[in-house]
Design a binder for these strands. Structure first.
Length: 501
RNA sequence: GGCGCGGUACCCAAGUGGUAAGGGAGAGGUCUGCAAAACCUUUAUGCGCCGGUUCGAUCCCGGCCCGCGCCUCCA
């Protein structure tokens, strides 16, 4: 079965394919780099990441472009407040964004498109619209899109504009637009915008591109007039994506994107995340509170993308434990020696094969990550049981490892880089004088005074020696000492394994 | 007001017209010097409420209640 995805435009689940027979031409609306990314942002990018990875699992090559909006009202305002040019201001947050993406193991798209580097394409797209009188200039020098010239407007978000009256929710007095819903293509420069280098002198007049035109122009420039797939958060459906369709299709008279993918918003502790509710978290906030990057990734992926996810700290703890169980299992499969053949081989191998098939089928069914995850846990339990009974063969263990590899090619949580990620966040907090935002536990366990791996290894060796001499009091004292510092020990026939709590 | 989504065990969460996946947590047990890990047992005669269709509904239809999202910058 091939990968099938819900398409917002058609309202149906449809197979995903590359219309040019080579690579899936895929555009995803990226971040506006005016601040640090919050977990809601990353839920979207995380599911886009799963989409990428699932496509690869199906042998579908990608040409994935993501934009960076590096000029907009907030950037201009914040840059001005900081006395910086917009480029200087936004570069810092773009860097932070990619660091966060790395911390969450989110793959980079094939291409990154910055708005400020693609202004000429936006200008010429507006010119094409102006030639048809779909774009018009107002007295202040701004350009707008004439919505009533695009009959399909509303087809993505299923809005019936006939029933919407001008002025109902839009302030008509503010602009000299022809119709209230006409949206800006080009915003005339104001004096302070010229000062912060947020204005371009073009044939349209001095100004800067509107948000919507950026994505239309860049998507078509990098991927062609008609693309296979367009993605973003659910909020972008209207008006942003609707406007993109209008601009692009009005200019080319060709379908813009065949398939639209929208990721639903997450709730935090039952409410929409907002600064005023006090439930607004950046990735960095969570890392500095001591939550692991892997647990955050796993939690954000555990609920399928079309469902609302209620993000809670309890959920984060659950995910931490679930990831730990997977890692322990993965370790066991790799490190323990298994007999060549066992009587129980056949049924177990069959069960693993079934789990593998279910995993793939679940993902291909509109990226059902919850079901895919369950399939792996089913195998985990059965294989652990067999291992405990001594009936797990080398072959079955290898087959299990292959399934875990497949699982991790999507979920990407098995390799433990959490300590590294937390240390990076801690170093950043130190550099930015934000240590007051760091939990004391994180400072104790990951700060400069914390135990280095070699010190832990030395204590573990000392304890092993004490155990051999049956000096359990000393051995237990060392274990307790390490536990107090967040290091957990596990004895097994294969030796001692330690991990950070 | 318009459009849309959801209400499944203590918590999170899949799912199907034929009798409820998975994870986490709790309790009991096995193993272990003790732990940890792992495994076993256990936790929904019921899937918001009321009707209807059906041999049969948690899943289909209608109504109601509750929660949430979008309609404005927003992932």
């Amino acid at each position: 079965m091939a990968l099938e995805l819900f398409n917002t435009l058609s309202g149906k689940i449809e197979p995903l394919y590359a219309s040019d027979g080579h690579a899936l031409r895929f555009y995803c609306c990226g971040p506006t780099v005016y601040d640090f990314g919050h977990i809601g942002n990353f839920r979207t990018f995380l599911h886009v990441d799963v989409l990428r990875r699932a496509a690869r699992l199906n042998g579908l090559p990608l040409h994935h472009v993501m934009n960076i909006t590096d000029v907009d009202d907030k950037i201009i305002r914040n840059a001005a407040a900081a006395g910086q040019a917009i480029g200087e201001y936004s570069a810092r947050f773009e860097r932070a964004f990619f660091q966060d993406m790395d911390a969450l193991n989110i793959e980079r798209p094939e291409e990154i498109a910055r708005a400020t580097e693609n202004v000429p394409g936006m200008v010429s797209l507006i010119e094409r619209l102006a030639a048809q009188e779909i774009a018009y200039k107002t007295e202040d020098g701004s350009w707008y899109f004439r919505i009533n010239r695009f009959p399909g407007y509303g087809k993505l978000s299923k809005k019936d504009l006939e029933g919407m009256e001008d002025g109902a929710r839009v302030d008509l007095d503010e602009y000299d637009k022809d119709a209230a819903r006409d949206f800006a293509l080009w915003k005339a420069a104001r004096p302070e915008e010229i000062a912060s280098q947020a204005a371009w002198d073009t044939v349209l007049g001095p100004g800067r591109p509107g948000w919507h035109i950026e994505c239309s122009a860049m998507a078509m420039q990098y991927l062609g007039d008609s693309i296979d797939l367009h993605a973003g958060g659910e909020d972008l459906m209207f008006p942003h994506h609707e406007n993109e369709i209008a601009q692009s299709e009005a200019a080319t008279h060709k379908p813009f994107a065949r398939h639209w993918f929208h990721v639903r918003f997450l709730l935090v502790e039952g409410k929409k995340m907002s600064k005023s509710e006090g439930n607004f978290f950046t990735l960095r906030d969570l890392l500095l509170k001591g939550y692991r990057a892997s647990a955050i990734r796993f939690l954000l992926l555990s609920v399928p993308y079309r469902h609302q996810l209620n993000f809670t700290f309890d959920g984060l703890t659950e995910s931490t434990n679930a990831v730990e169980r997977l890692r322990t299992f993965h370790d066991r499969m790799r490190k323990q020696a298994w007999p060549e053949n066992t009587p129980a081989d056949h049924p177990l191998m069959e069960l693993i094969r079934k789990g593998d098939a279910e995993f793939t089928a679940a993902l291909n069914d509109d990226l059902n990550t919850a079901e895919a995850r369950a399939a792996v846990f089913d195998v985990l339990r059965a294989v652990n049981t067999a291992a405990d009974q001594g009936s797990l063969s080398r072959l079955a263990a290898e087959q299990t490892l292959a399934l875990l590899d497949k699982f991790d090619s999507i979920f990407a949580v098995l390799e433990d880089r959490d300590a590294e990620r937390t240390r990076d966040a801690l170093a950043w907090a130190e550099a930015e004088n934000r240590l007051d935002q760091v939990s004391p536990e994180v400072i104790e366990r990951f700060g400069s005074g914390s135990l280095a791996d070699v010190e832990i290894d030395a204590l573990v060796a000392e304890r092993t020696q004490a155990k051999q001499q049956r000096n359990f009091a000393r051995a237990d004292a060392i274990r307790k000492e390490l536990l107090d510092k967040g290091i957990l020990l596990e004895d097994s026939k294969q030796g001692v394994r330690w991990k950070r709590k």
